[in-house]
Design a protein around this nucleic acid. Sequence first.
DNA 1: GCAATATATGTAGTTAACTACATATATTTG
DNA 2: CAAATATATGTAGTTAACTACATATATTGC
Lengths: 160, 160
Amino acid sequence: MEQNVIDASGLLAISTRLQRLSDQIRRDGLLIYKAFGIDFQPKWFPVLYTLYQKSTMSVVSLSEEIGYAHPSTISLLKELEKEKLIRSKKDKVDTRKRLVELTEKGKMLLSTMEPVWEVIIKATAEITNTENNLMKAINEVEATLQEKSFLQRAEVYMNK
Amino acid sequence: MEQNVIDASGLLAISTRLQRLSDQIRRDGLLIYKAFGIDFQPKWFPVLYTLYQKSTMSVVSLSEEIGYAHPSTISLLKELEKEKLIRSKKDKVDTRKRLVELTEKGKMLLSTMEPVWEVIIKATAEITNTENNLMKAINEVEATLQEKSFLQRAEVYMNK
DNA sequence: GCAATATATGTAGTTAACTACATATATTTG
DNA sequence: CAAATATATGTAGTTAACTACATATATTGC
């Protein structure tokens, strides 16, 4: 019962709650990779996984794919380049573009990571698959926000 | 249909997704307060609201109440002190403790904020009240994690 | 075909939480 | 009752995203 009651103050602090949960999961994620002896940071996942699937992409299209602002992607790419997991080359047709791809080392790493992913997927499914599934909830909220932003919705109530 | 399918890569990127959603909501939250002409940052909410309800608290007990690490609370308190929304005094019994409370200005501000909160609560309820309620999902996941951490759950699968 | 606009990338600085460490005071224990 | 331990607060530095601004190249429209 108690569990299902939503306190109004909780709604007001929702961004704080989301961030805290994110931090907590990320910290444990790092430890899981470490436990497998893999030198990998959870924040690298979206970039590497996308390159794993799509092979070559420009910085902006990669950013759009993973839903990041492009400077965030650039800074991740810098780290990954330092780790020699990715490399980049100029697009010969549109010279503004920098095309990014996995190195052999990057491909190797990703293939050794499959068993870790399985573990993470299972553990994540375990913690999120409660009555209200967190993953589905995030998807639903993002879709809802895409229709009409939080601010726009608030504005409707403000003018009453 | 599509909506309900959970992609495994989504599970691997869950911390990223949570953080992004948090950022997005926080940014709009700030704009909503601004639209009401109130100089207020969403991140101040947990501290101020708790002091509004409990009147006087020490730094650590306040941190526990809102679920923050104490240095986070200290830095928020610094900002709030600069804004003259809170003040602090030594505990006469246990002189290690610093007791924090709202100033008159702080109490005034919070009372003018009630209408804004109503708007935010309504708009938040609107975006979170989908099939899988985000607020309930967060509560459920936090409860689940309290029983057994993400890392501990992953370890179970690792040893198989 | 050049001027205006749009797109791609990059840099600098900000934010809001955190951990690790340091210090002061209280409490407990041998 | 003094030494050891625990608790309360504070400081310094880190993290992982962001926005705002700058620059270079491409595209569009007159």
